[in-house]
């Protein structure tokens, strides 16, 4: 896969200087699928405005971790607090927590029977109770921000993968979320479309959004992350600022993983 141009450019030196209070707190979180231990004593603290990249081999639990934050997956042990609300299975108003957390999926998951614009307008109208005019104004603003205002009237099947994913990002942003989760948002895209999506993600990161990004795009991590987390076998193995994470990984498993992923077909780190 080609290295995205956006990600090879040098990033700001210390992006994490203006972080706020703790918005996500995970304490000793455990989760099992049957007998398979997917999350193993996960502890994680995320500050408002912090941008975290989570990487690791497939099956390491990174997607599951972020899916626990909006309870698309239930955790069985431990505590998860998001913006002051303690999450648990079968809480009656989980939707109130979810509306403040945007999520972008690997497979886009746009609503195929609605146009790009309608995809963006639905939740602000039905969840936030905005008028049609107000919702449309917001939707058009965000479609502009992801650089596809001209596709507003098209249905998802008429759009390329990269365009669909940008609509999906706009759809989440229309809810004005406090946190954005990206679950391998560029993994299903053709190489030439990865850039256009990463560019949008980079500009979102630069706007101060709290982001948790599961990705293999190490260039993106280097450029925008305040912290890179490496997971393996359901554990957080390493967590460090990108400069330290890439230059001097502490754990043997991290070194192995970075060795594989960086010596592969990806461009090596910029100096």
């Amino acid at each position: 896969m080609a290295m995205p141009q956006a990600a090879t450019a040098p990033g700001p030196d210390s992006p994490g200087s203006e972080l706020g209070d703790v918005i996500i707190e995970m304490k000793k979180v455990n989760k099992w699928y049957g007998t398979f231990h997917v999350l193993h004593d996960v502890d994680l603290q995320v500050r408002r405005g912090e941008r975290i990249v989570i990487c690791g081999p497939s099956g390491s639990g990174k997607s599951t971790l972020i899916r626990c934050l909006n309870q698309l997956e239930e955790h069985q042990q431990g505590e998860i607090v998001v913006d002051g609300v303690t999450l648990n299975a079968h809480m009656p108003r989980i939707d109130v927590v979810r509306r403040e957390i945007g999520m972008v999926f690997q497979s886009f998951n746009l609503f195929p029977h609605l146009t790009a614009l309608e995809n963006c307008m639905l939740a602000p109208m039905k969840v936030r109770g905005l008028s049609r005019e107000e919702a449309e104004r917001i939707a058009r603003t965000y479609l502009e921000r992801v650089h596809i205002p001209e596709q507003a009237g098209k249905f998802p099947v008429q759009l390329s993968g990269g365009q669909q994913q940008r609509v999906a990002i706009a759809r989440s942003l229309c809810m004005n979320p406090k946190i954005m989760l990206f679950d391998e948002a560029t993994s299903a895209l053709d190489p030439e479309m990865v850039n256009e999506v990463l560019d949008v993600m980079v500009s979102l990161a630069e706007s101060g959004m709290t982001m948790l990004v599961v990705t293999h795009e190490m260039g993106f991590a280097r450029r925008v992350a305040d912290r890179v987390i490496f997971m393996d076998a359901g554990e957080i193995v390493e967590s460090a600022p990108p400069s330290q994470f890439f230059a001097n990984p502490q754990n043997e498993r991290t070194r192995q993983f970075l060795g594989q992923i960086l010596s592969g077909n990806r461009t090596p780190a910029p100096a």
Binding site: D95, V96, R98, N109, F111, A123, M175
Partner: peptide, 9 residues
């Protein structure tokens, strides 16, 4: 999942 994550009931 997309609907849930947008806070739709």
């Amino acid at each position: 999942e997309a609907a849930y994550s947008l806070g739709l009931t």
